[in-house]
Amino acid sequence: MFTYTLRRLAFSVPLLIAISLVIFLLIDLAPNDPTANLPLSIPPETREELRKGLGLDAPSHVRYLLWCKQFFVNEPLNLLDWVTGGESDRLRVQSWSAHAPVVDLIAERLPQTLWVVGLSLVIGAVIALPLAILSARHQYGRIDQIGTFITMVGFSVPSFFLGVLMIIVFSVKLGWFPSIYDTTHRVTDWHSLTIQLRQMVMPVTVLSVFNAAQFSRYMRASMLETLHKDFVRTARAKGMTERRVLFGHVLRHAMIPVVTVVSLAIPQVFAGAIVTEQVFRVNGLGTLLIAGIQSGDVPLVQTLAFLFAVLIVLFNLLADIAYGLLDPRIRYD
């Protein structure tokens, strides 16, 4: 397993470089443009000048290599300088719309996205785990029926609707929670923590419903599969208690699809939640990405998409390792 991990890690480097090239070509080919948002009073000649100013007149491969240099060489070196306290003036990856370094923009957005999307993932899993176990244990029992109904309705109600509904009920009618997420709020004491929690309640709820629904469905299905497997019968026949069967054998094997789903969901934390972030004005990484796409901000979208790709590759590797730990018979060599 260890050599397998090393080999996969080593192979990730060329893979990621290939992915970054494909992403670049895709974004470059996409017809959105950095001058699209300008008022129409700005004449075409000026627009052309602006495009040239952004380097858009250079051929694609030059622009790709420039990004590579800025991202793979300049950014790490600048970080090194910053850590050691030195000054650095290497050109960083600059956003076209904000005229600011992309990495700084991402760092600014990361806290709120981690808070909201990350927490919703945890809450979703915390709800899904017991729900799925109880549902599978008593298939078609009351908990299973109610759980199935709620999770499926939760999944089919889209966040653009649920979010607005919650704002109308809890912000407009009841006035319990703010509809605007204040990203400048600092948690310093008990009181400010309650403010932070209040502004997180609605976006986290919307996202948790979705996550819980998805996790619990896969988990329940997989537990049901496992419950009917031979080795479970054997364990039962040997007189093992139901609790030990469930937690010792079934859960372990049922975790495989859950690990897959979670390993796919964790990178999504970094991608943010576009709709939910917009509805509650969380302004995290999801809205940064969508704004970048809408304003044709190639360096921003490229950098975000690439960092996302790194997480995808990394977590898929972790998932493969986790399969091996959950089921020692799985081997890749």
Binding site: P31, N32, D33, T35, A36, L40, P44, I293, G296
Partner: peptide, 18 residues
């Protein structure tokens, strides 16, 4: 058409207002 394409003026796109 998405506004970022419609008003984008990318000569490669068939969907610009120009």
């Amino acid at each position: 058409i998405d506004p970022s394409v419609f008003f984008g003026g990318d000569p490669g796109s068939p969907d610009t207002f120009q």
